[in-house]
Design a protein around this nucleic acid. Sequence first.
DNA 1: TTGTAAGCGTTATCAT
DNA 2: ATGATAACGCTTACAA
Lengths: 328, 328
Amino acid sequence: MVKISDVAREAGVSVATVSRALNNLDTVRPDLAEQVHRAAAQLGYRPNTLARNLRKQSTLVWALIISDIENPFFTAVARGVEDTAQQNGYSVMLCNSDEEPEKESRYLSVAGQDRVAGVILSPHSASTNVSALGRIPLVVIDRTLNAPFDVVLVRSRLGAQQATKHLLDEGWQRPACITGPRDAETATERSAGYLQALEGTGIEPQVQYQRFRSAEGAQATAELLDGENPPDSFFIGNASLALGVLAELAKRGLRPGVDVGLISFDDAPWAPFINPPISVVAQPAYDIGVQAAQLLVQRIAHSGPQAPREVNLATTLVVRESSQRNSH
Amino acid sequence: MVKISDVAREAGVSVATVSRALNNLDTVRPDLAEQVHRAAAQLGYRPNTLARNLRKQSTLVWALIISDIENPFFTAVARGVEDTAQQNGYSVMLCNSDEEPEKESRYLSVAGQDRVAGVILSPHSASTNVSALGRIPLVVIDRTLNAPFDVVLVRSRLGAQQATKHLLDEGWQRPACITGPRDAETATERSAGYLQALEGTGIEPQVQYQRFRSAEGAQATAELLDGENPPDSFFIGNASLALGVLAELAKRGLRPGVDVGLISFDDAPWAPFINPPISVVAQPAYDIGVQAAQLLVQRIAHSGPQAPREVNLATTLVVRESSQRNSH
DNA sequence: TTGTAAGCGTTATCAT
DNA sequence: ATGATAACGCTTACAA
């Protein structure tokens, strides 16, 4: 393996000059720099990242710790992070905490140990302990933390309110809300928006808090429909829940967009293609990733203490057929 | 930051002994080892991964380079790889090549540069150049490479044949095949299985080669249905295509499982939940990840030249409603 | 502007 | 079984 001293010999300069030239430090004479670059190219020199890391006590790698890699929302976020990282010379190590606190803390610990340059985290809970990171810059996404860090959020509540209002505007009379567990901020923000939309309408709110999974969506739907005051439409807190709702409705022969109204959070890949196409509240997932990455780049650059920043992004109401009346 | 020499002083031994004790090399007296561990714990010693990497010229990180992070198949693979890596003390850096050769080669280059301990790759094409990896162990998945490496594959052709035969057994008369582009091995293997199933039946095969995307699935369906010999059923090469097919069928008022038969490769999360539930050829995606990871662990352990191994996994036919006649 | 040399914190070799 | 000590390949004071 050709190293820096080989390049130095070939170029007839010292290793320090080679290092400076290769890192484009403008304290080196242009012609010498040129000479060094030629020598490096000729010998096929590849800097040894490992040595560089040890010397600088840091790497050019980010850790992106997300809570569910099988959720299309997070994969879109990941693409945003990755593209932006790339542009800034970083690689990203994608870690899937699978909503398990132990996995999450192990990844946090590995990130600290490996001296990654920065971390982007969608925390399992607001009380997630990030002390293992030491002074490594951190950006939080999707949910807030009980500590002052840069964070990128979406206005979930507003999106939920708009979706529910849309249901009402379409003429549905009794919308219900099926969302995630009470201890998930994303879940409660969405039900809060739903409740806001119902304020002053005289409609009695019905909210089901379940885990963000298909089976639970089906079960919640069944309970609501079998209840005293069966809803005629649904605002659903995420795409997995929506699948379960759809299955239960199909089982009962209830057609979305005709017999029942339906709108869901998150624009899953399947939403536009199934029958009928599903109306959704789309989150700017890719952009969340980009914004978080940009905050991280800045945080790394100005490593001094700096007030935490918060970025809030808007959702988009995408009206397809499932939320309309008599669309068939 | 407390380092190995601090532990050495605290324990009253040399740094060499500390290193040996901490790495559980049984060449150290038990009581001394005990003493070292206590000292390390007391001081809160955390080994510096960066120094270790430089010294060993390798890391405890794998690169997993997949071609599409938004494809549920690959995310399931990723989970299998990650869990197994974890168990063996490795972290995994997930890289999304997005089917772009340039991204793929950049990741290959970063992996080589960063001296990762091993790489698992779903190559964009059979001629992907992996020379940037040097002697870093490599395991290939999903598609083969024009070079002798360990590989984990699925018996796609057999799965496709079974699916098509199932369509025939259900009484469908003219199944068509919609699959990926001709230069994708996974695509052609699936059409090959379809063709095999039709051999000797007197049925005229109809195959559409398209990109693995929803829009193309819709278009192919339209072309087939508007053709001279419209099919009465479809064997579809992957889940994205299937979404497009479903959309086109809905547009024409054709109901899967009643007016038309339908079975698709890949058990997407939405497949069981939509109306009607979709029959599929399920790939053992998680297990592919596990197997690939295990091959990699072994390859790393026995770094000497060793004959490449090939693991072939079977698909599972999952019959739901879309492939049946008169299921309603 | 350039060169010399001192680390960065381990692991591994070689004596003892 | 243990201890000194030389790498690993780079970056960066400090000196010139």
